[in-house]
Amino acid sequence: MRVGKGGTPKLEPSDPDDESERRFIERLRARDERAFLELVQLYQGRVYKLVFRMVGRRDEAEDLAQEVFVQVFKAVGNFRGDSRLGTWVYTIAINLCKNRLKYLGRRKTESQADFEPLKERLNAEEVQGFTSGDVERPDQMAEGREVERIVRLCLAEMDPDFREVLVLRDLEDLSYEELSEITGLPDGTVKSRLHRARAMLKSAVERKLGGKS
């Protein structure tokens, strides 16, 4: 994150030693309410999306995303600035998501299927891969939707530790270094866990698709 002249944060990556970011963090540490408001406005979209992709329920995601910022407000006094502010916020978000998922034991239910149906989503034309976005005929469209549903179901059933690396790498496009900071795992472990998560997802989807045909 970079902070502009007026202390307004921008989204592009920056050097953690950036003077303006350091000033912004100081304002946060001093419990400057306006600075915190700026932080919420800057990150709320990304945090909500991340949380939604992790927990899969809109109501749960909104509640949890708000809780993320409350925790950020509480803990910002302890933020040493070793990592970028955005990475730190993501770390808190991911940890809260994993705790909530474990607490609710939601993985074993199908309630994660609250993921929005395709027609309600934005930028549906950007959907990639073997999905309904690629097909034109109604039967192919239905098939694409079914595959999406199965993928979502398999992701919902996946262990949060594996799900987090998939979400952070494949959806949030974070680097391995950032993944390593957020998860607290060595680079190599992140890579192997990501590889394993993809392989597990592929097997699970194939198993479910095989069972259907």
Binding site: L37, V40, Q41, Q44, G45, V47, Y48, K49, F52, R53, R58, E62, A65, Q66, F69, V70, F73, F115, E116, E120, R121, L122, N123, A124, E126, V127, Q128, G129, F130, T131, G133, V147, E148, V151, R152, L155, L166, V167, D170, L171, H195, R198, A199, L201, K202, V205
Partner: peptide
């Protein structure tokens, strides 16, 4: 790996419009 990545993006790639969290926070 690339294919699985596309599957994930297809299934979860586009989330809904995020709500305004400021008041609640």
């Amino acid at each position: 790996e690339e294919r699985v990545k596309e599957l994930v993006r297809g299934a979860l790639g586009s989330a809904s419009v995020p709500p305004d969290l400021t008041q609640g926070v």
